[in-house]
């Protein structure tokens, strides 16, 4: 068992087979640096619980393919990313920090699917980006591809 500690001081025990899906922790274990509790200063307990849930479900990824449980895993993944935007982003940041390739893949695709049809204004708000383009520069970019700014699918809501 490996002990992980969130930035709000909560400890979690995770099976080694599950936790080594994180390249970062796998390297720590291999280097003998995981003997006591591993502190994760960038991850809060709420996010860490989600990450551990994913790791435990995906513990036997290879076996799932053999036993025909792939559909079950696919359904779990679909349910897993069904969370609020901010929550999803916290999981992406945690997956990036812990270097969990499959989880990063899953959540970034979900984020891309949600952003795809958003308006420019909505994207700025969702990703907390300040617009530093002048009106003229914006108009020039629109003129490059006016068709990209048109269409019934464009969605100005933020969620």
């Amino acid at each position: 068992m490996v002990k992980l500690k969130s930035n709000d001081d909560k400890e979690f025990e995770v099976e080694e087979a599950a936790v080594i899906q994180s390249e970062m922790i796998k390297n720590m274990i291999e280097d003998g640096c995981a003997t006591s509790v591993i502190p994760l200063p960038n991850i809060d307990s709420k996010t860490l619980i989600k990450v551990i849930e994913y790791l435990n479900k995906h513990i036997n990824m290879g076996k799932a393919a053999e036993t025909g449980e792939e559909d079950d895993l696919k359904e779990f993944d679909e349910q897993f990313v069904n969370m609020g935007w901010e929550e999803l982003f916290d999981v992406i940041m945690a997956a990036n920090y812990l270097n969990i390739h499959e989880l990063m893949e899953l959540c970034c695709q979900s984020a891309a699917d949600r952003l795809k049809n958003k308006s420019v204004r909505a994207v700025r708000e969702m990703l907390k980006i300040t617009n530093d383009l002048t009106e003229e520069e914006e108009q020039e970019i629109i003129n490059d591809a006016p068709w990209a700014f048109e269409g019934p699918e464009i969605d100005d809501t933020v969620n």
């Binding site: 940041m93 970034c108 695709q109 984020a111 891309a112 420019v120 994207v123 970019i141 990209a148 269409g151």
Partner: peptide, 26 residues
């Protein structure tokens, strides 16, 4: 949001969205 995370997400978008999001910021 870290720049490398933005990069990961944007590579998964279709071209139409990317042409639109060139207008988000410099």
């Amino acid at each position: 949001v870290l720049p490398e995370v933005i990069n990961e997400i944007l590579t998964r978008l279709p071209v139409k969205s990317l042409m639109k999001f060139r207008c988000v910021s410099k």
